[in-house]
Amino acid sequence: MKRKFIIKSVLLNLVAISIGVLTLVPFVWMISASLMKTGESAKFPPRFIPSEIDFSHYVFLFQNLDMARYFLNSLIVSILITFISLLFNSMAAYAFAKLKFGLKDNLFKFLLSLMIVPGQVTMLPLFLMLKEFGLINTYLGISIPGMASVFGIFLLRQFMLSIPDSLIDAARIDGASDFKIFFRIIIPLSRSILITLAIFTFIGAWNDFLWPLIIMTDSYMYTLPVALASLMGEHTQDIELMMAGSVITITPIVILFALVQKYYISGILIGSLKE
């Protein structure tokens, strides 16, 4: 019995390790290929360790291909979207969780029903509209579809419902306005869920592709994913260069995730809870 237990334990752990290795192989190859000399990654059998470390592809990306600019664009856009959407969503969530007004439930249900509409349906008309406003190739234009999200409002509302009404009533008796209650009580108490949503939004904005591809037509305004896809056209054969670009795109997100994964994973679980 004991023996069987040990064999089973070893086997299952081996399976877990193998899946882990399979999961990591693409990343390992990406990093090592990005450090190889030109042409070395196109050899058979594939190499996993560079014969010597070569940073020249990274240097080339920053010196010749505007990588710093793309990085900055991605950073600005992601921070802008995160900041605006957090403010807008939390204000609306507060109204839906704690304020009393007619049609509240119907309005909320209507918003939830919008979640079924795929964003692609709205993209062409939105593009034409923003073109009229002169918002193509602007940070504001790229941020617009992300400024408010039904999912964000839903997530924050669920959390705010759990804040006791007595706290709010007490503050109101002391003469606090709704704004004071919102900024002094609700926001500090919702810190953990706000951090969760901020991470979700930031990562989503950083990784987003279709909308940035549509709205940023001037290469100077490309975000990293759009820049990578466009580089892929001219530099398909420069594998090491493309891998260096992928490393630069992925690394900030992986570091962020490593630092805050607890919040990220709890967010997935809260988001899946049904009403």
């Binding site: 190859w29 990784n207 891998m243 992925i250």
Partner: peptide, 10 residues
């Protein structure tokens, strides 16, 4: 969490 465009290239 990684960027789909980057991993698709890899």
């Amino acid at each position: 969490v990684t960027t789909i465009v980057a991993v698709a290239i890899v």
